[in-house]
């Protein structure tokens, strides 16, 4: 079982759309897939038309396996299940803090799921909390959607810096998201990410109204717009993620790599700052 998470300290960067679409692609590829909606807002649950409520709430989840197994719901798609969000997840931090070894506690919750799932994809809430710490501990890879703006990049830098102190650092897979190629800054960012080899995945998700419409249609893009450019981009992102997961048994960048990456990121910010031309 491989554990993934879509994560960013910033909100509104496309985490949920990424989690939902990658999960649909994973299931379409024949992998038994579970989405764990960890965001109390419950957007992933909403996309799948599943009620955002878990019996026992946060405390029930932390308690143990039975609660977790019983809370899983089948989506309308074969091979794809969801562990719904619950508004009471906002207390998950407290429940985890009350447990012994909170980071390991949540990782242990995932163990029984290994028999029935090939991929577990967490849709995390923004911000750094006890919950996100526990995800860092358990995940094989963190997918970090990053809007091509200096502020977003700065946040990515903050995350990488923070991960230096996390034991069992997961592989960090940042990728550009909500790319609007009409904007010169976005274009320049994309070029920079490509050329400077700062560890961004090659696939980039375009800014698209098709993705926004997911909230109305409440279906993953593979169902709603299978041939749209956004779907194609998610497909490329999924294939690249799979290659990273299966092809390279790398469990995360080393401290030196993170340091180097940060330095490169900083250089990138300068570069963009100097050259930022007017939009088209």
């Amino acid at each position: 079982m491989k554990i993934l998470a879509t994560y960013n300290i910033k909100g509104g960067v496309g985490k949920t759309a990424t989690a939902v679409n990658l999960a649909a692609l994973s299931a379409e590829g024949g992998y038994r897939t579970l989405v764990w909606d960890l965001d109390p807002q419950g957007a992933a649950s909403f996309y799948f038309r599943i009620r955002a409520k878990v019996k026992g709430g946060a405390a029930g989840i932390v308690k143990g396996r039975r609660a977790l197994d019983g809370a899983i719901r089948g989506t309308d798609y074969a091979g794809l299940d969801l562990l719904p969000a619950d508004f009471r997840y906002r207390h998950l931090d407290i429940a985890l803090a009350d447990a012994r070894h909170p980071e390991r506690r949540r990782a242990r919750l995932l163990e029984p799921l290994a028999d029935s799932n090939d991929h577990v994809i967490h849709d995390c809430a923004p911000s750094i909390s006890r919950v996100s710490e526990s995800v860092f501990e358990a995940a094989d890879a963190l997918l970090v959607p990053t809007i091509p703006t200096p502020l977003s990049l700065r946040t990515l830098g903050q995350l990488l810096k923070h991960l230096r102190d996390v034991p069992n650092t997961p592989t960090v897979l940042p990728f550009l998201c909500m790319v609007d190629r009409r904007k010169a800054l976005h274009r320049q960012f994309c070029r920079w990410a490509e050329q400077a080899s700062v560890g961004f995945l090659a696939a980039a998700i375009p800014y698209s109204s098709t993705v926004e419409r997911m909230g109305l249609r409440r279906r993953p893009l593979t169902e709603d717009a299978p041939r749209s450019p956004a779907t194609t981009a998610y497909r490329a992102l999924w294939e690249e993620t799979l290659q990273r997961l299966v092809g390279e048994a790398r469990l995360g960048p080393s401290r030196q790599e993170v340091k180097a990456m940060l330095r490169r990121l900083e250089r990138g910010e300068d570069l963009v700052g100097e050259a930022a031309p007017a939009d088209d």
Binding site: G29, G30, R32, A78, G79, S116
Partner: peptide, 17 residues
């Protein structure tokens, strides 16, 4: 689609391209 089902598992068959 290819559908593979292991009998006795709780999961339904999963379609594959």
């Amino acid at each position: 689609a290819l559908l593979w089902h292991r009998r006795g598992l709780r999961t339904p068959p999963v379609p594959l391209d």
